[in-house]
Simulated assay, not measured.
Amino acid sequence: MSKRNRYVTSPPAENFDGVLFANPGHPGTDRSMRDVFRWQRERRVPWPKRIEVEGTVPERRVCGLRATMVGHATVLIQSAGLNVLTDPVWSERAGPCGYIGRRRTTAPGIAFANLPPIDVILLSHNHYDHLDLPSLKRLHERYAPIIITPLGNETIVRRAVPDAKVVTGNWGSSFDLANGVTVDIVPANHWSARGLRDRRMALWSGFMLRTRAGLIYFAGDTAYGTGAIFRDMRAAYGRPDLALIPIGAYAPRWFMAPQHVDPAEAVLIMRSLEARKAAGIHWGTFRLTDEPWDEPPRLLARALTSHGMSPACFEALWPGQAVNVATE
């Protein structure tokens, strides 16, 4: 019996064979059970059980460009009066239910009750540390934001939130919002799955968000690969004023390199995009892989030094920390 995609009925495309999505020109991301068992047998560095966070209360609206770290890949972007959340996760665990999955090491840097009105959610892919249905339900009940996501993820969201305002598309899709705001779905070198039988049936992506206050790139999850997708983004969209780039969940490299950048590769993404400012995300909240908890910022600083770059141009964001970007 032929395999059927449970999320998407779109026609085939360069990155879609009618059943599964792929990363054209990039090494395969699928891993065998043998690979998984080998990884799990390797020595793992323990993380702290809990690290205290001093949360912040953001302003209701911001005229310029500001990004505040909530935790992991969840960032509040405030730009030209628009409030945007990336991959919102307020749950205590990243998993299919409240008692399964990786527990948070750090509390959210913005308490849910302290959020300003949310206009838009950028949802990059369906892994549990990025697509958290309980958080999406709470946000819909309180704000009913527009959710922009790549193909297939709308099916998952609408099963839990039937009246969610979801718009979806493939890489290259562009959406015009109010007040001159545009959101473009851009490629990422990654994969997707919610269970054992839906691997690569929903698409993954990054985003370019353009407002009157500047251009913001949110990477979601990605590997670097040849760097071609990032150089192509630079040519297509211009220089981002702010790039939100993952710097964690990279070890061991033999397992993770096709799907997650390490800090040195995160710097290469910044340089390929020629971003004016970058912020390191996707580290220190959920222990997903094997690197020590505090290693990503240290390796990021080392990589910046090796390129002769100032540490101020690419900071590893801590929950509750905000970065303000002056744009031209």
Rank of each mutant, 00 (worst) to 15 (best):
residue 214 G to A: 06
residue 41 R to F: 12
residue 318 W to N: 12
residue 133 L to I: 10
residue 10 S to P: 00
residue 287 R to W: 03
residue 298 R to A: 15
residue 121 I to S: 00
residue 313 C to N: 02
residue 13 A to Q: 11
residue 222 T to A: 05
residue 306 S to A: 14
residue 147 I to Y: 01
residue 106 T to D: 02
residue 64 G to N: 11
residue 9 T to I: 03
residue 164 A to T: 00
residue 76 L to F: 04
residue 301 A to T: 10
residue 323 V to R: 13
residue 302 R to K: 15
residue 137 K to R: 15
residue 126 N to H: 07
residue 40 Q to A: 12
residue 295 E to A: 15
residue 245 I to N: 07
residue 236 A to M: 09
residue 111 A to M: 01
residue 228 A to H: 14
residue 216 I to A: 08
residue 59 E to Q: 15
residue 60 R to L: 13
residue 22 A to G: 07
residue 51 I to C: 12
residue 262 D to I: 00
residue 83 N to H: 02
residue 299 L to E: 15
residue 186 V to I: 14
residue 271 R to F: 00
residue 240 P to H: 04
residue 117 P to L: 05
residue 214 G to L: 05
residue 180 G to P: 12
residue 14 E to A: 15
residue 35 D to F: 04
residue 319 P to H: 10
residue 312 A to F: 01
residue 81 G to P: 08
residue 309 M to F: 04
residue 121 I to Y: 02
residue 295 E to S: 14
residue 28 G to H: 09
residue 234 R to C: 05
residue 137 K to G: 00
residue 6 R to Q: 12
residue 258 P to H: 07
residue 310 S to D: 15
residue 114 N to K: 13
residue 251 A to F: 07
residue 218 F to D: 09
residue 179 N to D: 15
residue 257 A to L: 08
residue 183 V to K: 04
residue 248 G to K: 02
residue 266 A to C: 11
residue 273 L to W: 04
residue 321 Q to V: 04
residue 92 E to R: 13
residue 171 W to K: 01
residue 255 F to T: 02
residue 312 A to W: 02
residue 205 S to V: 08
residue 245 I to P: 11
